[in-house]
């Protein structure tokens, strides 16, 4: 063992995390444009769900095409807690993490009996079922029209709604990263990575594979829930169409645009997917076509993630997990 390399990535991760915190704080202080701030807020919010999917897909090797549904469950849980139960926003956020997390844990055991393309099919169907239910269960969701409207503004004591959301999303994102990087750093993470190659090998070395997979699925669902709840709080009005199959696919895009091997890729991916439509004139028109072509290209030439492959080309380093 050479002394220069540590056996944990955590110190390294902590430095980047601190750097990110500083950048986000400076950006908040420097930003004057409402538009730029909204892009950052949306990027941070989506990155949280994408981090969850990175853990599930990248580390544990389990695909989910239904993560948008867990975002939706988080969003509706938060809205329900705020409007119907008149609970304060922090409590609503906690509920929005716990409910999807618990649901994810319960669904995980049956659904993770599937693998490969069957798991993709099953989770896609799950996402579609959620969309149909959200669109129809009007007493809770308000359906497609009007949906959820007029969630309370979070502005307090000279802090605007946007500013509060920026802070909330920032803290949530930093915590999500901290949770994710420490989760994969220890033996739990190593067990997951072995499981990704072979469940048999992982089990023979003592990893309870069913439990490990269920935990990751639940964590990914909980992070999606947090992301969805923040989105709901920020937008204040939304309907079921925000949480359809398209959102699940966008989350998948964020992960593969970034990296399947590190949670940091999710931040890059989320930023790219949020910024591009806002940056390029007429992008929205050709959005699906471009996403589709990009996805095909990545799967053909950089299946471990575009950001990661580019990064390796530049640094010429073989990645070491």
């Amino acid at each position: 063992m050479t002394t220069s390399t540590s056996n944990s990535n955590l110190r390294h991760d902590a430095v980047i995390l601190a750097g990110l915190a500083v950048v986000l704080t400076l950006a908040e202080l420097a930003l004057t444009s409402q538009f730029h701030r909204s892009i950052l807020i949306l990027s941070m919010i989506h990155a949280i769900a994408a981090i969850g999917l990175t853990l599930l897909l990248g580390y544990a090797g389990q695909v989910s095409l239904g993560q948008g549904a867990f975002m939706g469950i988080g969003a509706y849980a938060a809205a329900f807690a705020l409007q119907k139960l008149a609970l304060p926003a922090p409590v609503a956020l906690v509920a929005a993490v716990l409910l999807p997390g618990l649901l994810g844990f319960l669904i995980a055991r049956p659904i993770l009996r599937l693998s490969g393309h069957n798991l993709a099919l099953g989770t896609l169907a799950l996402g579609a079922v959620f969309f149909v239910v959200a669109a129809q269960w009007r007493s809770v969701t308000g359906g497609l029209d009007p949906g959820i409207v007029d969630l309370p503004s979070l502005a307090i004591a000279g802090f605007s709604h946007e500013r509060i959301l920026y802070i909330l999303a920032g803290i949530s994102l930093l915590s999500a990263i901290a949770v994710a990087v420490s989760l994969v750093d220890g033996r739990f993470g190593r067990g997951l990575m072995v499981l990704r190659t072979s469940e048999l090998v992982a089990a023979c070395m003592g990893v309870d594979t069913v439990r490990a997979k269920s935990m990751v699925f639940a964590i990914a669902a909980a992070l999606s829930g947090l992301s969805g709840a923040l989105l709901a709080l920020y937008l204040r009005s939304f309907n079921a169409s925000a949480f359809g199959v398209g959102l699940s696919i966008e989350l998948l895009m964020m992960v593969i645009l970034g990296s399947l091997s590190t949670v940091w890729g999710a931040i890059f991916g989320a930023f790219a997917i949020i910024v591009l439509p806002n940056l390029l004139e007429g992008f929205d028109h050709a959005k699906h076509l471009i996403y589709g072509l990009v996805m095909v290209g990545i799967m053909m030439f950089a299946p471990r993630g575009l950001g990661e492959t580019l990064f390796r080309l530049v640094t010429r380093k073989r990645s070491v997990a």
Partner: peptide, 22 residues
Amino acid sequence: AHGMSVLTNVMAGAYRFGQHGL
């Protein structure tokens, strides 16, 4: 296991001696 260094692969083998989980 792919995507892991030689050392991490072998560290993963010591799974049962870890006290610390999730």
